[in-house]
Amino acid sequence: MHVTVNGEVVELSESTPLLDYLISRNLNPAVLVVEYNRKILHRDRWSQIQIGDGDTLEILSFVGGG
């Protein structure tokens, strides 16, 4: 199945809880904000949402800026 993450198509072998996916990519969930199919997803729900074929994710975090 294919998921679009930050504009890139990513291959997933099976439907995965979002939180597990974030950890699998070596990301620190505490500092992230996630848009799931263009809707902001509150962090409480990251363990419940199963990402699957056709989903779109935007994973963002703060960087330096003026």
Binding site: V33, V63, G65
Partner: peptide, 18 residues
Amino acid sequence: VTVALRRVNLNGGKENIL
């Protein structure tokens, strides 16, 4: 202090500004 929001680098990036 101002900050900006960006897509994370999925291939491992810098530490978080926060």
